[in-house]
């Protein structure tokens, strides 16, 4: 059985972020022993037998990596798990280099087959690769993709404080909040994405209105409209944008090019709206409507508003 160190990071409001709690849940499902190491959640309680809370004035990915590597050695652990977030993906390879271990990014499944086996998509999800660590120490570092593992429950183990390492190379000086506090596509449970079928940038207002009607939806975009300058890079879903797996993905005026599909095909439910009945997106969608997005969107938005009000 394995002993796993799990890094629990804070979200913008200073509580443990959900993706980290999913990493903790994943570790508990395959590990005999789990040590949670948190930063920035003020020692708040977690569902783990042991919880170390790093305390430091400045955050740096190198400092956190040094702490995780030191705790790995002290605990005699076999693996380090982080959430596949901007922070987790930044820190994990540094921990791997310090431990002389492989780094497996964006893991979607885990199993214990006489040692941990990690399943991860490659080629933007067109290929599934299963790997295990085979180095002399057998150590592995992994980041776990969100929405793939059940989150750890509320816990009772408060963090024991530990001074964070002073190994600061690149130092975080500021986090500027995103414009209007908009929900990011990588975190949203519902995504409404638009493509060329919207015809012009101003028509994305209809996409924004539908997202607003759900209340907890983010706006996404195809590569074509991002490259055309209609929408910001941060909204792009696909092989050269963000990979997402929300509960509901609504693709509007998006044909379903392989590079877009790669970023959203593991969404739980997919809805496609497109005027071309032969568009490849309909092969992927659970539910499709054939027709002009500009006519359908306002009606759909009103219907969703009604449904949410009645819920």
């Amino acid at each position: 059985m394995s002993k796993i160190i799990v890094f629990v990071e804070a979200n913008a409001s200073g509580t443990a972020n959900r993706a980290s709690l999913e990493a903790l849940g994943a570790a508990k499902s395959v590990g005999s022993d789990v040590v949670a190491v948190s930063y920035g959640i003020g020692g708040a309680a977690l569902d783990a037998p042991k919880h170390i809370a790093l305390e430091g004035e400045s955050y740096s990915p190198d400092g956190t990596a040094a702490d995780l590597a030191a705790i790995f050695a002290e605990e005699g652990a076999t693996a380090v798990f982080l959430a596949s977030t901007g922070v987790g993906r930044d820190v994990a390879p540094r921990v791997a280099a310090l431990l002389d271990a492989p780094c497996f990014s964006d893991v979607t499944e885990l199993s214990d087959e006489g040692g941990l086996v990690f399943t991860r998509p490659t080629l933007a999800g067109k290929l599934i690769t299963r790997v295990r660590a085979s180095g002399a120490n057998g150590a592995a570092v992994a980041t776990l993709r969100r929405n793939c593992f059940g989150a750890a429950e509320d816990g009772t183990t408060a963090g024991a404080g530990r001074p964070a390492a002073a190994d600061l190379k690149a130092i975080l000086t500021e986090i500027a909040a995103k414009e209007g506090g908009k929900l990011d596509v990588s975190e949203a449970p519902i995504i409404v994405s638009g493509g060329r079928g919207l015809k012009e940038p101003a028509n994305f207002k209809l996409i924004e209105d539908l997202a607003a009607a759900f209340g907890n939806a983010a706006v996404g975009a195809s590569r074509a409209v991002v490259d055309a300058g209609w929408r910001p890079h941060g909204e792009q879903v696909g092989q050269t944008g963000k990979t997402v797996a929300p509960g509901l993905y609504i693709a509007v005026g998006i044909s379903g090019a392989i590079q877009h599909v790669a970023g959203m095909k593991t969404s739980k439910v997919i809805v496609a709206i497109n005027k071309d009945p032969d568009a490849p997106i309909f092969k992927l969608a659970d539910y499709g409507i054939v027709g002009d997005a500009l006519e359908i969107l306002p009606v759909l938005t009103e219907a969703v508003k009604g449904a949410m009000a009645g819920a």
């Binding site: 972020n17 901007g86 922070v87 190379k169 130092i171 975080l172 000086t173 986090i175 995103k178």
Partner: peptide
């Protein structure tokens, strides 16, 4: 990142 735009000095 999910937290916003992170500024680093190095």
């Amino acid at each position: 990142s999910e937290r916003g735009i992170e500024h680093f000095r190095f």
